[in-house]
Nucleic acid binder design. Structure first.
Lengths: 339, 339
DNA sequence: GCGGGTTCTGGGAGCGCTCCCAGACGTCGA
DNA sequence: TCGACGTCTGGGAGCGCTCCCAGAACCCGC
């Protein structure tokens, strides 16, 4: 009998079993939500757990069981930090909220500690049961590679390098479409867009929505300038648009952060907003409400995004059948002063 | 002999021992960098590890050992989400970077799954070796409570409810002092401040710096209005200041996000920035560079903050002696157009 | 009555490590 | 020469769970 070592504090499953008047096995079954446990035992176990303040030992469960009880959140961010920040925090909050209560640990990976092969080796090495991959650049091969190893994954944001990887994304297309329809309903007749880069699905989907909205009303779709999700590039794009069409009366900007740059240029040129030019952004980030004038924008629920992502992965891990391969989350228009 | 269960892939310590021609114990010693291992054995073990591609099982180490090989990042955010977001992402990146390579897992806790007692029970229940507590509200009792249980912790941001809890913080005092000195060097003579709430150390320290800077030059320190880290409250505060001193020529605003509101009010009243009124913010968040005009502000290295926080905790866990009880990180002034 | 199923239960062998113990060597001073 | 002490080593008992097995209890139809 070794008594010299310091034991970890807190009760273990054995105590719970004794208090509940059942065996270890039964307690384990209750904790893991297995069937074949009588209602009576289940209640007794729950009572005992509450009474003792028991919480299962993660390491022991992982060691003994066949699963890792952990999922990874892989942030595959390449450069576009600006876009990532507020977005990222919201997503994380959502992921965390969805994980609450389940005994699943969240491992963060940020494309730093291990690169390429090592990262893949770690993820497929049994340390995690699945992964959430938030990939900002559509061309990123990581989601596909991971998926092909058989590790359950869900990608946040439609991957351009497609395949059949399950993903969750905001409904960028319909968000943009709604924004354009709104501008048209205001009587605007010359609607331009500052689009995102062509290698990001988020940019392309918003552009498609804009195109579709104009096409519905037989309006021209020439006034497009691509930009890269920074304020400065947004400003440059706006200048280009004004050069091509000084008489435009509305701009749909694919991201709030670019809209700030556009706003600056418009104001410097003496355009009144929204009287002369209406501006609609996308994201509804903090930037939108603090802009001058406050930005009308398409809102996406970032926290909900994180939750859905997680839910989808957990459902797959739980062996649920017939899960949708992809999910698009609704967006909504937030009216402020810029349109 | 149970052979039905599926074993995890990869070699275990036993194989390494056999290949190296030593015992399990010796391999374990090498892995953990203990002394009392001959150079010969050490080399042999390293070779065997490389050859087999062995990587120790985290769960087993944790279960068998006396430490959890994990630390918690506790985000004690109460409402002030706006402040939290960009800050938070940066801190997380820093924490993660510092953890890279060591076999320490990061657990996220966000004041959601378990509250109060439960959270404390979990943290002190041996699931983690220590905790990083990022507490935005100075009055939060959590840091102190945790510290008193004996769990090694480091607090991000000076806790008001002090005690002797180790903490890391930006040097808010000197940052503010530098900003005021800069304004004075520009020849400004009536320098107001929009301060943070009185229950947050970050607000109070910046206010002290402002006071000190003015006192150095025998200037009055009456023009203070407290606000709450939102743009709207910043605007309100600016209005109040202008009512009290329409002829002020500079404002030091304790956060960029409040500065946006102040900027709006100043511009609406026809003040030219920086000609009539110079504005200096704090944080150097995204907001600062996208403001109109771009904001001169005090920069704090948020990622470095996360790194330092983590470094301090790991050092303590490693048993290092004579660690500083608190650490203040340098700030720097970023000149843009508003001052 | 009997065989067959389904529901529920406890016992106990491991999961892959760490860490204690006991012991085999040295090396040194008395 | 002897012990005392420091260095190095292997053996093996757990860490706290899960999951397999065997079996008890109960249902059903024939």
């Amino acid at each position: 009998m070794t008594e010299g070592r310091t034991r970890r504090p807190g009760p273990r499953i054995e105590e719970v079993a004794r208090v509940a008047g059942v065996s270890k096995s039964t307690v384990s079954r209750v904790i893991n939500g297995e069937k074949y446990v009588s209602e009576r035992s289940r209640q007794a176990v729950h009572r005992a757990i509450a009474m003792l303040g028991y919480s299962p030992n993660h390491a022991a469960r992982t060691l003994a069981g066949s699963k890792a009880n952990a999922i990874a959140l892989v942030i595959s961010e390449q450069g576009s930090r600006v876009l990532a920040d507020p977005f990222f925090a919201g997503v994380l909050r959502g992921v965390h909220a969805e994980l609450a209560g389940r005994h699943v640990q969240l491992l963060l990976m940020m494309n730093q500690p291990l690169d390429g092969e090592d990262q893949i080796a770690y993820l497929t090495g049994g340390h995690v049961d699945g992964a959430l991959v938030v990939s900002l650049h559509g061309e990123d091969p990581l989601p596909r590679t991971l998926h092909e190893t058989g590790l359950p994954i869900v990608v946040g944001g439609r991957p351009l390098a497609g395949g059949s990887v399950p993903f969750v994304d905001a409904d960028n297309f319909n968000g943009a479409l709604g924004a354009v329809r709104f501008l048209i309903s205001l009587g605007r007749e010359k609607i331009a867009t500052i689009a995102g880069p062509v290698d990001m699905a988020v940019g392309m989907d918003r552009l498609s929505g804009w195109r579709c909205g104009l096409a519905e009303h037989g309006m021209g779709v020439e006034l497009v300038v691509h930009s890269d999700f920074t304020p400065d590039s947004g400003a440059l794009a706006m200048e280009e648009l004004l050069r091509r069409a000084p008489d435009l009366d509305a701009v749909f900007v694919a991201a709030d952060i670019m809209a700030l740059g556009a706003l600056r240029v418009l104001q410097a040129r003496g355009y009144r907003i929204p009287d002369d030019v209406a501006v609609v952004g996308f994201d509804d980030s903090v930037l939108a409400s603090t802009a001058v004038p406050p930005l009308t924008t398409v809102r996406q629920d970032v926290e909900g995004f994180g939750r859905t992502l997680t839910w989808r992965l957990l459902a797959e891990l739980a062996g649920e059948e017939k899960l949708p391969q992809s999910m698009l989350l609704p967006t909504s228009l937030v009216r402020r002063s810029s349109a």
